[in-house]
Design a protein around this nucleic acid. Sequence first.
RNA 1: GCGGGCUUAGCUCAGUUGGUUAGAGCGUCUGCCUUACACGCAGAAUGUCGGGGGUUCGAGUCCCUCAGCCCGCACCA
Length: 887
Amino acid sequence: MDNTKPELSTRYSPAEFEQRWYAAWEAAGYFTPDASSTKPKFSIVIPPPNVTGRLHIGHALVNTLIDIITRWKRMSGFEALFLPGTDHAGIATQMVVERELAKQGLSRHDLGRDAFVEKVWQWKNDHGNQIKDQLKRLGCSCDWTRERFTLDEGLSHAVRTVFVKLYEDGLIYRDLAMVNWCPRCHTAISDLEVEFEERDSRIWSIEYPLADGSASLTVATTRPETMLGDTAVAVHPDDERYKHLIGKMVKLPLTGREIPVVGDAILVDPEFGTGAVKVTPAHDKNDYEAGQRNKLASIQVINELGLMTAAAGEAYARLTREEARTKVVADLEAIGLLRDAKPYKNSVAFCARCSTIVEPMVSRQWFVKIEPLAKPAIEAVRDGRITITPSSWDSTYFNWMENIHDWCISRQLWWGHRIPAFTCGDCQHVMVALDSPASCSKCGSTSISQETDVLDTWFSSALWPFSTMGWPNETDDLRAFYPTTTMITGFDILFFWVARMIMAGLRFTGEIPFSQVFLNGLVRDEHGQKMSKTKGNVIDPLEVADEFGADAVRFTLAILSSGRDIPLAKSRMQGYAAFATKTWNAARFAMMNVESTLAESTSAFDHAKLGIVERWILSRCNATARDVNRSLEAFRFDEAANAIYQFFWKELCDWYIEMSKPVLSGREGTPEEQHRAKAVLLTVLDRALRLLHPFMPFITEEIWQKLGPADPSIMTAAYPKHDASLDDAEAERVVEIVQGIVTTVRNLRASRGVPGKERLRLHLRADGADRAALEATAYLLRDMAKLSEVRFDGTAPESAHRDVVGGVELALELPKIEISADALAKIAKEIEALEKELAGAEGRLSNRQFVEKAPPQIIAGARARRQEIIDRLATLRQNVAPAGTGE
RNA sequence: GCGGGCUUAGCUCAGUUGGUUAGAGCGUCUGCCUUACACGCAGAAUGUCGGGGGUUCGAGUCCCUCAGCCCGCACCA
């Protein structure tokens, strides 16, 4: 009770305190959990963003949700770890640096491998902190002392360890295979990194004459340029039209090469097209397999850069695929062998990274034999050790895992984990080991060279939950925080990342990497369109954080986060910035009224002596704590945020603060009551701020600190939990009646156009406890409904307007203002609706089946409702009856 | 082809194990500067819950079916 009352500035200006609080929290070490703590552990690892990237709204969403859960757990008594870090993102990062080099007219080959890699590291050191600063700006409570990078020495060691183990277990093999090749990235990519898109194209029919000139076969293709590499024509072995041709030779147009007609029941569907298929084993997956079956030659006519090779013929060599296509079609037409070129829709494979058309290419690559890894990973989800939320993703997960293909893990890049395979220069013996062997284990030669390929970035990401904790070493962190508790990430990387982490975790740590997976939706614009720079509908999280405050951005993302698509608009953020302002102003009001600090006043009131309004708000606050905790348990961020929003704004501000004003100002009640009201106001504000803190960390800390708390920071204060002893059904029931009466009177005033300053007289009829409670709170009715007096003596005049609220009959004396036609029509409409409902209720209650089968409480509810309708109809009819004829 | 999802107020979405009276935010309309807040207060309007059928005493909720939209996987001569 000093005279230095805490104060908040009159305006909410998040820029004044958000960054200040982040720095203070970090400096105080609040983000850094203690692995040796005896508290229960909660841990979550960040989905590592690309180290060269900038934070986009999708990152903001995921990390906000992670931070909400982490802060909530931390306040709920857990030793909580939010482990941050970044991903080296092989292709993307290499591309960025190559683009930089290109500006100087250089390619990576001009620098050489070592110098180029050094250049990328330099780039990483110069630009890799951007994401970090952006996460800080959003308030993410990451433990920066544990920050990791997928190319750190520790994580690289984990990658090599895993590679060696898988190799030794026979789960990694190197083989010649048809892979997806990106001519632009100049590397193989995995099936997942290929995106298919429907394109309007053509299907060309080409005539292939038999070598003996006796006849010809017509084949169809969507890629005429590949005909230069055809090594056979296939027909179905049972096809009566063609079976006699099997074994004969065809003269391949434009090249003059003779190729055989083969029978292949797998490749050819006799119903499709002409029933004859050209076979290009070097450039088509199915043709490659058919080539193996039929022992066909393979002629590579397209090279690693997507250019036609010498084998395609001098006329076509060095043309691009597109140029070759045009020329082949023209040349065929010129010699009269092009039958037709019909418009055709087909799905084209693009590189997910650079959108170049992928070229199927045969090359020697490293693969992971995935089925043995997938099986236990399927089990872990099937038996519930890992839960996926929303659960509708289960079947997608199973569907993919059960039909999984071997994973191509080698990339022809320079930036990444170089594959720890070593080849003897003399005997070609291949050794896979953590470190470079000094000599060949077979022939003793010291001429050893390491594999030049690097690993798919996702190979290292798959280890992230344990490699970041120090695995394969038995570290304190690994013991304390692994398995992690929760994984939150976008559903788009369920296969890329989540599934692979589960497989890797089970295989190498023998444990699930996390027990809960929450898959969040994808942020779209307000019309559901994907955000993209070209469309110009991108919302930059940093920009909006500056405009509305990081708290508003976080709250908006949380409250919109349900669903697969998250339609985001700046106007929504503006709306929740208004909520922050509301919070600020409510706190200002409280501070103008309270007389003690939070530290002094906690539980400084005797609950038994509290008035009904105080009991009510404490009960509501308690129910909100229950709802918020329950929603967060279920990852229903939208429900949780909404529960706080509704409680804070509607119940706390619109009702409780208004209802407490008469007592707080001293107009009503005793000094003791005033004292208690102040204590309750402070208590409820404190609890509300704590509930809100995970969503809006900055504003809650700024306000809370001004309240003179006992704890050093709200982020380490206890999160409110439901306390059954604070549930007060009776207070809630009574206050609901009070609210109902106030609302009814306000309604009538508005619909009758009663001027705001005119005070009206209200008559109430209630029994026993209700009457006592209403008499005790009559001052509230007077205040909030602008009444001159509230009477309980049954002296309401005939002309008064009647209504029933929660069993309490009310009669309002209205001035002689004609009921408007609108108001009358409204009442008539309501009567009509009630009559309809009454008929329904009566029909139901007189239905024997309903009475026999429905549960008792439903029947009781129906009876109560029927009575309510009857009462209400009576009052409504009375109100519209001409004066004097009413009963 | 296989698998999954969506269709609820003008817009964007909630709606737990079926319980009859379908909610929120934003927007719209009306009246208010009431001593925390006009980024505010009070009040109001709006839904054949995509169409049809079924199960049930009772369906937005379960089943079937039709239509439209979306996503993933596979295939595409």
